[in-house]
Design a binder for these strands. Structure first.
Lengths: 261, 261
DNA sequence: GTCATCCACTTATCCGGATGAGTGGTGGGG
DNA sequence: CCCCACCACTCATCCGGATAAGTGGATGAC
């Protein structure tokens, strides 16, 4: 399958397609401040006149701008400049413990009541894959930043075996996340965390729940907590709009040559 | 043809666009196993005949399938079924040190020579923002996984002030990343790392360089290394196709901010 | 003033055709 | 035999036109 020695990269300066040129030109104008967020771009017909290209070419250009996240397009209205990525919210993924109090979610508040439902592990990365068939229940929360109003979806997946270890896990409504960590820690079960980060395009229901725009990707992280016997104890899933959120990790150099895996 | 408007109440079932119907039909066939990964879908002209729709409609349908990540389209060849999301590559973001040897990138190899260029800090998160105007130079690398062939873009941003601390930073061509870390550590400058993770849709040049499908988002992480005086020393940027990569962080609970008494 | 209707304008979807460029096999010239 | 020009087929880009559907303001009946 490796056909030939692949070139490192070649400039490949092909003549830029017209729709790309148009897209670039409009993008430059947006960045230059000719259009501010909320402004309407010229209509398609106007662009056809202005740039002397076909209708379809203009449409392709607009499609590019949309996939770049620069504009939102609404039928009957026009193309609205999205512009500023907004004040990016930092989500700290370090767990800090001061005394008995755990701090898990930083400054994120909670919107509404958590929704508890029965489920199974599915689609989880690596370490939890082998427990896929295991029964579990999930707690869904919708977190928000009281300052910016940014929303983040939070889900906790708890195997039934783990639920027996912490009384807080059996309660209804669901206990705060901090309490769960605290009880597991008190039971001597907590050992280490591993956080898996990826991203994908959102599903339709996520687009509505998190107020996501067109091509805006979703930042996803799984925090898998392992117990003293290396077993995975529970899994936290966080889904945040990538355009307005950033995950922040503190990383420390470990002197141990990782024997795992 | 089904345009009877005699009903007083509209069906409210939004008539699905034809290109969506075609896309869905083909997607179902792919999932049903009629086409296996590597197979070629029928050509556009063939689909026009088969489904009795216009050429542009077929193209839109193919665009949908592409943005769903189900197929790859190559000019002159056809539409190739991508099928499986591919074995996801794990990028470990823990720095481990065994003896004098630093291990930064796990099992990722390097494709081609690093490209060094003069630049300034720009568009960086948080801590480096205040040094935005500072002169720096950047080293661009294209990493790849020899097993899966997955590619990842790596960039290092090094302020000129930092370059004076490590001899390896002044060399041409650029020194390996491990050597840079080793020398900074030997100079007693290394203190802590902070990793900022986000995601966005790729730019056109990134799409070609990393062989990305259309709507496939890009996972981006900045590792900012701080020196003993809390100054940011350098910044590493990693851009990985989110569909095939996952960042893995080990997280440790920090007992910091213990209550004084 | 209220409200429904109309209408100008916008994008969305659909149809057609034409040319350029990349791919891969075929077959003839050497 | 090998090599290369050629060709059939593919998608990429470009052009045009037509109808449907959503938006928002103006209009006019009441």
């Amino acid at each position: 399958m490796p056909d030939t020695a692949t070139e490192p990269f070649e400039p490949l300066e092909a003549p830029t397609p017209r729709y790309m040129q148009v897209a670039r030109r409009v993008a430059d104008e947006i960045k230059a401040g000719k259009y501010v967020p909320g402004d309407l771009l010229p209509s398609e017909a106007e662009m056809v006149r202005r740039y002397g290209v076909g209708k379809h070419t203009v449409r392709s250009a607009i499609g590019e701008l949309r996939s770049m996240g620069l504009i939102d397009v609404r039928q009957g209205k026009g193309s609205i400049v999205r512009g500023r990525p907004g004040p990016t919210h930092e989500i700290s993924r370090a767990i800090s413990r001061s005394g008995k109090k755990w701090k898990v979610h930083g400054d994120l508040g909670e919107a509404g009541d958590p929704a508890v439902s029965r489920t199974t592990f599915d689609g989880l990365p690596g370490e939890l894959m082998d427990r896929q068939d295991q029964d579990a229940f999930s707690v869904d929360r919708l977190l928000y930043d009281p300052d910016t109003g940014a929303r983040v979806a939070h889900r906790m997946l708890i195997p039934l075996a783990t639920a027996a270890l912490a009384p807080a896990l059996g309660k209804e409504p669901a206990a705060p996340v901090e309490e769960i960590y605290g009880q597991l820690s008190a039971a001597g079960e907590l050992l280490s965390w591993t956080e898996h980060v990826t991203a994908r395009t959102p599903y339709p229901d996520e687009r509505t729940a998190l107020a996501l725009a067109d091509a805006s990707p979703l930042l996803i992280t799984y925090r898998i907590t392992h117990g003293t016997d290396e077993r995975p104890l529970l899994c936290e899933e966080l889904r945040a709009p990538a355009a307005h959120n950033r995950l922040v990790f503190p990383v420390r150099p470990s002197r141990a040559s990782r024997p795992r895996r």
